[in-house]
Computed example of a mutant assay.
Amino acid sequence: MKKGFLMLAAVAAIVFTSCKDEKAADKVNDEKVAEVAERDENAEGTAKMTFEEEMHDFGTINEGDVVEHTFKFTNDGDSPLVITQAKGSCGCTVPSWPKEPVAPGEQGEILVKFNSRNKPNNQMKTVRITTNTESGQEMIKIKAFVTPDADKAAAKAKS
């Protein structure tokens, strides 16, 4: 009986709090809309991220090795380049990037670390970069052939 009453009270609370007369469109401030429109009109240029290389091959490495590579890029656009996020395709691929804007004509670097632990054989990983470029996203890749750990393979064969 108590559970039923509590459920009814919870449902009633949800219904009463979600049925507001105020609409999302009513919350839009006309001054802010005009301010954003003016800012967008005055914005000039676009950032453009040009990499020296978009793919790096580590070649053959041993399982358990942690390798890293620095991808160099230039802002070939005419406004500052801002990187808001860089994310590897899995937890074994970790990028680090400049947090400050890269001025037009300037260079920057993205360091990518790859941990090959438990990653035997061919590996291809990507790093997706969220930026203020025209496309909004850029991508770089790494690849490697990871030689399996002989001790792990022998232990697995015994079990």
Results as ranks from 00 to 15, higher is better:
residue 22 E to M: 12
residue 82 V to R: 09
residue 143 K to W: 01
residue 7 M to P: 00
residue 123 Q to A: 06
residue 30 D to I: 02
residue 58 F to D: 07
residue 79 S to T: 11
residue 119 K to V: 02
residue 14 I to N: 10
residue 120 P to K: 02
residue 132 N to A: 11
residue 99 K to R: 13
residue 42 N to R: 13
residue 48 K to T: 11
residue 97 W to Q: 04
residue 53 E to P: 03
residue 11 V to N: 02
residue 118 N to V: 05
residue 61 I to E: 01
residue 101 P to G: 04
residue 106 E to W: 05
residue 83 I to F: 02
residue 102 V to T: 13
residue 109 E to M: 04
residue 110 I to D: 00
residue 9 A to K: 05
residue 34 A to T: 15
residue 13 A to S: 13
residue 98 P to Q: 07
residue 92 C to D: 09
residue 17 T to S: 15
residue 28 V to E: 03
residue 91 G to V: 09
residue 89 S to P: 03
residue 21 D to I: 07
residue 78 D to A: 07
residue 16 F to W: 13
residue 30 D to A: 08
residue 36 V to A: 08
residue 100 E to Y: 12
residue 135 S to E: 11
residue 33 V to D: 11
residue 31 E to L: 09
residue 67 V to M: 06
residue 116 S to Q: 01
residue 80 P to E: 14
residue 89 S to E: 04
residue 3 K to L: 12
residue 59 G to F: 08
residue 148 P to E: 07
residue 12 A to G: 07
residue 113 K to R: 15
residue 116 S to L: 06
residue 45 G to Y: 02
residue 155 A to W: 09
residue 107 Q to I: 03
residue 50 T to Y: 04
residue 122 N to P: 07
residue 133 T to G: 07
residue 79 S to Y: 05
residue 116 S to P: 00
residue 37 A to W: 05
residue 151 D to G: 01
residue 45 G to P: 03
residue 88 G to P: 03
residue 116 S to K: 02
residue 30 D to Q: 08
residue 157 A to K: 11
residue 16 F to R: 09
residue 90 C to N: 15
residue 77 G to P: 00
residue 75 N to C: 10
residue 148 P to V: 06
residue 20 K to F: 13
residue 134 E to W: 10
residue 71 F to E: 02
residue 154 A to R: 15
residue 149 D to S: 08
residue 122 N to I: 12
residue 149 D to T: 02
residue 131 T to H: 00
residue 117 R to Y: 12
residue 131 T to C: 01
residue 38 E to F: 08
residue 31 E to T: 11
residue 87 K to T: 13
residue 31 E to N: 15
residue 99 K to G: 10
residue 130 T to G: 02
residue 57 D to Y: 08
residue 136 G to V: 02
residue 26 D to P: 01
residue 147 T to K: 11
residue 107 Q to P: 01
residue 17 T to Q: 09
residue 79 S to P: 04
residue 137 Q to T: 14
residue 56 H to V: 01
residue 56 H to Y: 13
residue 18 S to A: 12
residue 103 A to N: 09
residue 54 E to N: 15
residue 12 A to T: 14
residue 118 N to C: 06
residue 46 T to C: 06
residue 115 N to R: 09
residue 141 K to E: 14
residue 107 Q to L: 02
residue 149 D to P: 01
residue 55 M to G: 00
residue 95 P to Q: 03
residue 126 T to G: 07
residue 9 A to S: 12
residue 150 A to Q: 15
residue 128 R to P: 00
residue 56 H to R: 03
residue 70 T to D: 13
residue 153 A to R: 10
residue 113 K to Q: 09
residue 85 Q to H: 04
residue 74 T to L: 03
residue 88 G to T: 06
residue 143 K to L: 07
residue 100 E to N: 13
residue 39 R to T: 14
residue 23 K to S: 03
residue 19 C to M: 11
residue 40 D to H: 05
residue 133 T to H: 06
residue 144 A to F: 05
residue 74 T to R: 10
residue 19 C to P: 00
residue 72 K to D: 11
residue 34 A to L: 12
residue 16 F to Y: 13
